[in-house]
């Protein structure tokens, strides 16, 4: 598969205005992400990585500069068009899962397709089941979200993010609420999706999590400081097996 330009940021700025003060959250960002990349967006809090993710996720618009998503300039879009883009081209995974409580895994995964009038009931059900199978929750489709463990909930959230066949998945500290072992499981899942060709942008401040990605971009004070290709991506599955052994040794 030929690499395609999924995300292209051209001299992008984001300013916030608080009273008389102007806060420059992002300054002159140029960034290109090709299809099939597994990008880690890193930086301390206040570095601008959340602002960037909001813009990349079409939840916010840049103050200056252009953002091309899948060759479409997002800047010219209105609120409803942005919502449609989010619905059909993007997937979101959050730190706190954001599943609907007291709702089955299947219904949670179906949710994005409910907002897409082109998807029929039967297709919606089929695609949701397919997505849940892909994240290894085939047996738990009818389980209620609040009766699942953190790792399982995050898997449901990942299934929800891939159910609309997005061009890119944005994950915001997706392992932040999970213990090491579960974090590795989730990273293994992301790696598996990435290996199948899914483009993933992963925001994190943990360097050991970033090691599982294929490219790290580092932000500081609203500027892109470093852009590194990871030469040999660490396997999360291997890391997981190590964790298991450690636990075994301790016992």
């Amino acid at each position: 598969m030929e690499a395609k330009e999924i995300i292209a940021l051209k001299n992008l700025h984001k300013h916030y205005y608080v009273g008389d003060e102007t806060i420059k959250a992002l300054t002159s960002i140029d960034l290109t992400v090709n299809s099939g990349e597994f990008l880690a967006i890193m930086g301390a809090s206040g570095s601008g990585k959340s602002t960037l993710l909001n813009i990349l996720g079409c939840l916010d618009l840049p103050t200056e500069g252009d953002y091309f998503l899948d060759s479409v300039n997002v800047k010219t879009m209105n609120k409803n068009q942005l919502a449609t883009i989010r619905n059909q081209k993007l997937g979101f995974v959050f730190q706190s899962y954001n599943l609907l409580p007291r709702t089955t895994a299947l219904e949670n995964v179906e949710l994005p397709l409910l907002y897409n009038p082109k998807v029929s009931n039967a297709e919606r059900r089929e695609r949701a089941e397919h997505a849940l199978t892909a994240v290894g929750l085939k047996d738990r489709m009818k389980h209620l979200s609040n009766q699942m463990s953190g790792g399982q909930q995050q898997r449901v959230a990942i299934a929800r993010s891939i159910v609309n066949n997005p061009v890119v998945i944005f994950a915001d500290e997706a392992t932040g609420n999970l213990d090491t072992k579960t974090s590795y499981e989730i990273m293994a899942l992301f790696q598996e999706l990435n290996d199948k060709g899914m483009t993933v942008c992963f925001v994190t401040h943990e360097p050991d999590i970033a090691e599982f990605t294929s490219r790290n971009v580092l932000f500081r004070d609203g500027r892109l400081m470093k852009d590194l290709k990871v030469q040999d991506r660490k396997s999360a599955l291997y890391a997981l097996s190590q964790v298991k052994e450690e636990t075994f040794d301790e016992l």
């Binding site: 409803n80 919502a83 989010r86 949710l111």
Partner: peptide, 11 residues
């Protein structure tokens, strides 16, 4: 917020 993020429009 989630509904909006995954494509729910204001209306």
């Amino acid at each position: 917020g989630l509904r909006m993020a995954i494509g729910g429009k204001g209306r």
